[in-house]
Design a protein around this nucleic acid. Structure first.
Lengths: 217, 217
DNA sequence: TTCCTCTCTTAGAATTCACTAAGCTTTTAT
DNA sequence: ATAAAAGCTTAGTGAATTCTAAGAGAGGAA
């Protein structure tokens, strides 16, 4: 049995996992807005339950069991986001907070039905991959728009760490997943880019925005 | 702020309210599967929050504030049940357990959208009335099938205390809300009834079943 | 190397919500 | 009317999750 609180810790651990799959207690506690000692004792608890490998003064690692558990929660979150957008008419900037709650619902049938009604989607409304029922997730091979050059023509495939405000900003610029961006120029000073897409010509995107846009060629 | 636990107590109090609007601590604790002292101390807490009128050794009463709060939770529950049946393809016997969890989601927009997509339904899949956004609920004027007589022709309008098993039983007999029942005879000994409806003639319904079927004329 | 700082851990306490045991009040039955 | 039964309350406990305060370890700078 995994409590709601434990689920949130597991999800955070997976999101924060770097290439090494390691997360510091410090990072974790900041991400969850809790104090370090709280995170620390929870890690001992999750270690007892074999979700986490905990060694004093060492970074945290999810076990395979922990990764799967976390991926299944992320699956529920992303399926929900997709359902809210596709079947209920919400905007992509509105769904995170609701999915954050619904991801904790215990009902295989409920999420199975969502999956089916959506036609077994592979990605959520923000372009993030939806793990399958076994917790397997395709890792994205997208790159940041920041790493592209003038002259490149790329497709907007996903957004990262998408806050509501950032998504609303993208709405005002009519930037949606699938949009083809032609990079006119890159300003070396602040990494801002001038791009054209759809009916819009020579829109300027700040370096910060470009970093958060993931594209494929 | 009302916790998930408090919400469950409030909902139970409203469901158990009799004509007088009174509920005993004993009833409450049995209904929620908790021990009496636990219910008792929660009642003191809810009394402090002005949801309940608590007087030692006297039955419990919801305040107007408490009734509204409870009705809004029941609203979320019943809207969810309707959504699961109408928009997601669940059977009426499958939705209670899921709605029991989703009713605690905090999002006005989420339930507003459900309501809209459903066309502002007045009743849930079991025939129970859905309270409006202000917590106002139309009280049903239906009567139990048990109170009808041979010769009566009535419409199945709702089911009470509908356990999954009871609803599955109704499925096997093709008994749905809206079905017109013609009462052929009533067995005085055990109150069982012989009824005809749709393509079925002379089906026998036990007294227990008849009690749980609410009908209109 | 030694010290400073950042990070991590331990200890102790608060809150919420559950329990058992035992005492008190009200109702019911004789 | 009184005793037994049923229901209600108080008191003390425990688990889960959070916190603050303070001590312990690790890494970098001089």
């Amino acid at each position: 049995m995994v409590s709601l609180t434990e689920e949130n810790y597991l999800k955070a651990l997976l999101s924060l996992s770097n290439e090494k799959g390691e997360v510091s207690v410090n990072e974790l506690s900041k991400h969850l807005n809790i104090k370090m000692p709280t995170a620390n004792s929870m890690m001992k608890k999750l270690a007892e339950k074999k979700f986490v490998i905990y060694v004093s003064y060492k970074p945290l690692k999810l076990t395979e069991k922990g990764k799967k558990e976390a991926a299944l929660i992320i699956r529920k979150h992303r399926l929900t986001e997709m359902f809210l957008v596709e079947k209920m008419g919400f905007g992509w900037e509105e769904v995170h907070a609701i999915a954050e709650q619904i991801e904790h619902i215990h009902s295989v049938e409920f999420f199975g039905k969502m999956d089916e009604l959506l036609g077994f989607p592979k990605f959520d409304p923000h372009g993030s991959p939806i793990p399958d029922i076994n917790g397997k997730m395709e890792w994205l091979s997208y790159q940041s728009l920041s790493n592209c050059q003038a002259g490149d023509s790329v497709k907007l495939a996903a957004v990262v760490h998408s806050s509501d405000d950032f998504l609303k900003f993208l709405n005002t610029r009519e930037l949606k997943l699938g949009t083809i961006l032609k990079i006119k120029s890159v300003e070396p000073f602040d990494k801002s880019m001038t791009v054209s897409y759809g009916k819009r010509n020579d829109e300027v995107l700040s370096g910060l925005v470009c970093e958060k846009l993931l594209v494929s060629k």
